[in-house]
């Protein structure tokens, strides 16, 4: 998982709503709705800005929320990427 570079699917049509630190993301392609906490929402927004491998995404997300870059964050991002792949929101970036 280390070196794989991830990106948001190029054709993904995402619509955001945010209230008091909670985010709702509507993924129009699949019709799914996701209720996210700030950590998950920030990570997806970071990935939208630029493809990244899991370690880089952990650093960018943690720094955005001024959280430590620790094992908990790394595990969190790795699991998030796996889930986003299953949901069809994220893909392994074409090399």
């Amino acid at each position: 998982m280390r070196k794989t570079v991830w990106c948001v699917a190029s054709d993904a049509r995402l619509h955001w709503r945010e209230w008091d630190g909670e985010v709702v993301l509507f993924h129009e392609n699949s019709g799914n709705i996701h209720h996210l906490n700030l950590f998950a929402a920030t990570a997806i927004r970071q990935l939208l800005e630029a493809p990244a491998d899991s370690e880089t995404l952990t650093e960018r997300t943690a720094s955005k929320l001024d959280l430590p870059v620790d094992d908990e964050a790394r595990d969190g991002i790795e699991q998030l990427l796996t889930r986003l792949k299953t949901l069809g929101i994220a893909r392994v970036a074409p090399s």
């Binding site: 909670e22 709702v24 709705i33």
Partner: peptide
Amino acid sequence: FSRAATLSRLVG
């Protein structure tokens, strides 16, 4: 009640 949770439940 959280507005985000309200929207999610309305959709559900």
